[in-house]
């Protein structure tokens, strides 16, 4: 069933209203830069607008949206990592510098350290941690977003949690 253009636009504007801020924070936790997060969020919504006519409701709307957002963000990180490697630099070091120099960060040293420990996780594990810890998403929904099983998700989150807990005292 193809939706008429007016309906698509109404649906899209609803998604913008309900998800623009959530997706911004989701991306921001990965890239640690307001400007980069702003750019990526715009790309995400361009993709959502392009893919919206083909959305048939096979997945819940919000897991479909988060899947696009997470894939777009992970792709951005992958490209950034390649670019850093070609310049003989480390993306992890660049991200740590961003956390230290972020003018919009207004937490204390412990929270800054928490961000750095989360940053050290592998990209996919970091995605699981962010969706569970910050977004408080159910494991079943995270499994739909990332395309992994619930069992492996729980294991991965548990490992990440313990890793960060041992590195940072008084995790929230």
């Amino acid at each position: 069933m193809t939706r008429p253009p007016d309906e698509l636009e109404r649906l899209f504007n609803g998604i913008v209203r309900d998800y623009s801020e959530r997706l911004y924070w989701h991306v921001r936790r990965f890239v640690h830069s307001h400007e980069d997060a702003d750019d990526i969020v715009q790309d995400i919504f361009m993709k959502i607008w392009t893919a919206l006519p083909s959305y048939r409701g096979e997945a819940q709307l919000f897991t479909w949206i988060y899947r696009i957002a997470t894939n777009e963000t992970l792709n951005w990180l992958r490209k950034r990592r390649v670019r850093a490697a070609l310049s003989f630099q480390s993306l992890d070091e660049e991200m740590e510098r961003r956390i230290d120099d972020d003018p919009w960060f207004d937490g204390d040293a412990l929270q800054r350290q928490l961000s750095k420990e989360i940053q050290k996780l592998p990209d996919r594990q970091r995605g699981i941690f962010i969706l569970r810890y910050y977004e408080e998403m159910k494991y079943e929904d995270i499994a739909e977003v990332l395309g992994v099983s619930v069992g492996s998700l729980k294991a991965s989150y548990h490992i990440a949690y313990e890793k960060i807990k041992s590195a940072v005292k008084d995790l929230d």
């Binding site: 924070w25 715009q42 919009w104 960060f105 961000s115």
Partner: peptide, 17 residues
């Protein structure tokens, strides 16, 4: 997460999107 954004950013973001 303890991160701020510029004032009025999300309204501006919604308008652009």
């Amino acid at each position: 997460q303890h991160i701020r954004v510029p004032e009025g950013y999300f309204d501006d973001l919604q308008a652009r999107l």
